[in-house]
Design a protein around this nucleic acid. Structure first.
Length: 602
RNA sequence: GCGCCCGUAGCUCAGUCGGAUAGAGCACAGGAUUCCUAAUCCUGGGGUCGGAGGUUCGAAUCCUCUCGGGCGCGCCA
């Protein structure tokens, strides 16, 4: 349990004790009481608003109540003072010995420090991310969603949640992208067999990455499809291509250190009748109807035509702005049987998405997190409405939108033209700057803010480069360990041994302050996990690295402040314990980010 | 025109599910440093938190309105 939660519980216990003694009236709402580190360290170590929050219910003035609570809290172990300040805050100050004991906690826990159990009873969590269409390689924008989702999943795991990483594949688009993919590959297939199919048609995928796919098909199947009509080969080409593309995608993700537990294919949902069943269920609950969509809100487009009648989901019952179509017209006969639609209609993607989220819920995921690209922002409301409907309010969907990545090189923007098939792939970036850099940089901004990614800057060894700065802190700690062995041959710098050392030699304010910073780590993990905001981990690491570098630099001005103190092995051991604590917490944080905590920089 | 996201120092951004005098880096100004364990360090100026109301003991944070930017916008994928 994190430190602040422990004090929170103590404070609540004090309040309850006072109630039991009839010094406070019963029925007070303790739910809003907080125990947090104050922003200003001059205000002590732990600050609580208890008196402010309870004053009204207790019919007391906040400061009077605060005095009463402070009297009790001041007697707690480790507390050296409990002062009333401001409107009625209570500031607790803890003695140095208390903090040194917390350093022992860090050393004993190792990189497991920060692990939490807040997710233990929360049920299974599904994090669905990337889910890029299997029609081309992943680009840098996918990379952001990929890293975000993967780190969010790791973060939730560290906080004790049972997490599944899932990828959804839209492979069912008859008359859509999958057909275009099959045709594109057929084009490459003909080329591979020596034919000249000419220019690739409009709307197909001209990228070079399909050339090996066409060639592979030529090798395995020979020329047997050359003379056949499209209806004969389209399924074969679609399936083969999707499999190949997904193999590429998995490979690229592997290069960034990401793997998935589950891949769900849209086509399977259709084939197993799950879309039909989900719509059946909605019908039973009277949540669908045949109707025409109203014209779009606001200005009506010039080419607006009165809508056809189609099957609609009552999304407006669940907070959406408009009811959403489940079927759309098809310009080819649809073979699939359904009582909800005729042969001129097919399911919309939304209908499949409803079935998909229903499927996740049925698999035991009450908490679902979807990580989407910025261009899907307009889809959030309807999906949340659908989840509310289909889980009858028992499931929860959080959609995290990742904004664009602005790729640049030496300050000059790298332009990407998707149409020509020439865009910077995730793989190219990873091969160039390394997976650790990609992973860290992706989390140096909130997910909902655009991210600048400069291929040159991110590999610089300077203060400006956050990846370097954090990794350097860890490497620097280990450099100190190496020098320690030289200075004090035979010194045992294992965490276990350092924890038993003379920590009372840590007396300086800046040393104690660094320990305090370490103790906020478990709280950072919990709040980042609860808010689904993995970027907080990266920011915490930067703060910790800065504090550590700062302490190191003091040794420049004053040699007695260095971690290694010649002639004083006891003081050195105590300071090494602190250095070890920092290294462990950084390693713990980098572990969540999936970044290697290197011990040496080249 | 409608919806979503964003608006915080000159720039890029944090801001702990409402807390005290709003922070960091860069840039700028001044100073220290060639020492060492490994890639400098310290100090300082700089803000109507886009604006206006409201809720509250207390608002960058919540609500309403408004201005500005990005994204999306019927049967598309």
């Amino acid at each position: 349990m994190n430190l602040f939660k422990r004090f929170h519980n103590d404070i609540v216990a004090v309040v309850e004790g006072l109630v039991a003694e009839h010094l406070l009236p019963p029925g007070l709402d303790t739910g809003r009481i907080t125990a947090e580190p104050p922003r200003d360290p001059a205000h002590g170590d732990i600050s609580t608003n208890a008196a402010l929050v309870l004053a009204k219910g207790a019919r007391m003035k906040p400061r009077e109540l605060a005095e009463m609570l402070a009297g009790r809290l001041g007697k707690h172990g480790g507390v050296i003072s409990a002062e009333v300040a401001g409107a009625g805050f209570i500031n607790l100050r803890l003695d140095d010995g208390f903090w040194r004991d917390r350093l022992i906690d860090v050393l004993d826990s190792g990189t497991a420090y920060g692990d939490s159990d807040i997710g233990k009873d929360a049920g299974k969590v599904n994090v669905e991310f990337v889910s890029a269409n299997p029609t081309g390689p992943l680009h840098i924008g996918h990379g952001r969603g990929a890293v975000f989702g993967d780190v969010l999943a790791s973060l939730l795991e560290k906080a004790g949640f049972d997490v599944t990483r899932e990828y959804y594949i839209n492979d069912a688009g008859k008359g859509g992208q999958i057909e275009a993919l099959a045709r594109s590959v057929y084009h490459r297939y003909r080329e591979a067999l020596g034919e000249d199919p000419g220019e690739m048609a409009e709307g197909l995928y001209p990228g070079d990455y399909l050339i090996p796919v066409g060639r592979a098909l030529a090798e395995t199947d020979g020329d047997k499809w050359l003379s056949k009509p499209e209806a004969k080969w389209t399924d074969r080409f679609a399936n083969f291509s999707v499999d190949k593309m997904m193999a590429f995608v998995r490979d690229d993700l592997e290069a960034v250190g990401i793997s998935f537990d589950v891949f769900t294919y849209e086509r399977n949902l259709h084939q197993k009748g799950k879309v039909e069943k989900a719509v059946d269920w909605l019908e039973e609950k009277d949540l669908i109807f045949k109707g025409t969509l109203p014209p779009p809100k606001g200005r009506i487009p010039e080419d607006y035509e009165e809508g056809r009648e189609q099957l609609l989901f009552r999304a407006t019952d669940f907070g959406d702005d408009v009811d959403r179509p489940l079927t759309r017209g098809a310009d080819f006969p649809v073979k699939e049987r359904s009582k909800h639609k005729n042969q001129n209609e097919m399911w919309t993607y939304f209908a499949a998405d409803i079935a998909y989220h229903r499927d996740k819920f049925d698999r035991g995921f009450a908490t679902m997190i979807d990580v989407w690209g910025a261009d899907h922002g307009g889809y959030v409301k309807r999906m949340k409405a659908a989840v509310a409907a289909i889980t009858e309010g028992k499931g929860e969907l959080d959609v995290k939108i990742c904004q664009l990545v602005n790729l640049s090189e030496g300050g000059k923007p790298v332009r990407m033209s998707k149409r020509a098939g020439d865009f910077v792939t995730l793989r190219e970036v990873v091969d160039r700057v390394g997976k650790d850099v990609v992973r860290f940089i992706m989390l140096t901004r909130r997910n909902d803010a655009p991210l600048d990614f400069d291929l040159e800057k991110v590999t610089e060894q300077s203060r400006d480069n956050p990846v370097f700065y954090v990794q350097y802190a860890h490497a620097r700690a280990h450099s100190i360990f190496r020098h320690a062995h030289r200075e004090f041959p035979g010194i045992d710098i294992s965490p276990h041994n350092l924890a038993k050392g003379p920590l009372e030699r840590l007396t300086r304010d800046d040393e104690i302050a660094l320990i305090k910073l370490l103790t906020t780590w478990p709280r950072q993990v919990e709040s980042a996990a609860e808010t689904h905001e993995p970027h907080r981990i990266a920011f915490f690491l930067l703060e910790l690295a800065a504090a550590f570098h700062g302490l190191w630099n003091k040794g420049n001005d004053d040699a007695s402040l260095r971690f290694l103190v010649p002639g004083d092995e006891a003081l050195t051991a105590a300071r090494l314990a602190l250095v070890r604590g920092v290294a462990l917490v950084i390693a713990s944080g980098l572990g969540v980010l999936g970044v290697e905590p290197v011990e040496e920089l080249r």
